[in-house]
């Protein structure tokens, strides 16, 4: 078991955002957290890597309690790709190299530079490595952010809406890439997403959040029309095209 979230509660100003959330992820699995806007998906991701501290509950990564770990120790196990990326005056190489921060103090080693090279190759960013990221498109920037998370050598990747600002082609590219990393590099991934069709196509497992609670969870094949209608409040039909499920809203 790579990740185990147990009875996690989170809230502020007397408002409960997450209520007794429970989920688990095995090695090489891709879990997608689904649910309407404002239901607490991003909050849950932030709790998993201790950016936010839950009121109660436990979050275990490889059997260790994240809430009792030093921030740099967490960063050596969990890579996080935020929804929005700041455009700074840095080359893509430097921005990805920053992912080695949890492993280095000041000087970078040959290993660090080789790892960045490796990530650039996996992401297909060879031609853009020395470009400044403030001159990059949303898709390229998102790839750089994934690269930064990869060179942290994480056991678990957290991705907050990784395709929210991307066009169709770039969305497919990024999700294929994440799927490739998860399958071929023994990493697990948890991501939040709004696009149900992408979720059904790429994830192994799902969790539906409703009112801060787990509404339903299971293997991606188990997603049903009733679940979607109950969570999002609109009727849908799940069609199958060339063996792939497609969610179609009915009104």
């Amino acid at each position: 078991m790579i990740l185990e979230v147990n009875e996690v509660k989170f809230g502020y100003n007397g408002k409960e955002i997450l209520k007794d959330v429970k989920l688990s992820v095995d090695q090489g699995e891709m879990l997608v957290i689904l649910g309407p806007n404002g239901v607490g998906k991003t909050t849950l991701l932030r709790c998993i890597n201790a950016i936010l501290k839950p009121r109660s509950g436990a979050i275990m990564v490889e059997g260790r309690d994240v809430l009792k770990m030093e921030p740099s120790a967490i960063a050596r196990r969990i890579g996080y790709v935020a929804q929005y990326q700041a455009k700074t005056r840095m080359t893509a190489f430097d921005a990805i190299l920053m992912g080695r921060k949890p492993h280095i103090r000041f000087r970078t080693s040959e290993k660090d530079l080789h790892m960045v090279d490796g990530a650039i190759k996996i992401l297909g960013l060879e031609d853009l490595a020395m470009r400044h990221i403030d001159e990059m498109s949303g898709g390229e920037l998102q790839k750089v952010a994934v690269g930064r998370a990869l060179v942290q050598e994480p056991r678990l990747l957290l991705l907050d809406e990784p395709t929210s600002s991307l066009d169709l082609k770039n969305s497919m590219n990024i999700l294929s890439l994440i799927q490739h990393v998860v399958r071929d590099h023994g990493v697990s991934a948890v991501m939040t997403m709004h696009n149900l069709n992408s979720a059904l196509r790429f994830a192994d497992k799902f969790v539906f959040l409703k009112d801060g609670m787990i509404h339903s969870a299971g293997a991606i094949k188990e997603v049903s029309e009733d679940m979607i209608q109950d969570v999002y409040g609109i009727p849908v039909e799940i069609l199958h095209h060339k063996g792939r499920p497609l969610v179609v809203p009915l009104n």
Binding site: S72, A75, R76, I78, A82, M98, A149
Partner: peptide, 8 residues
Amino acid sequence: ETAQSLGV
């Protein structure tokens, strides 16, 4: 958020 996730 990115900085925090890098252990800062």
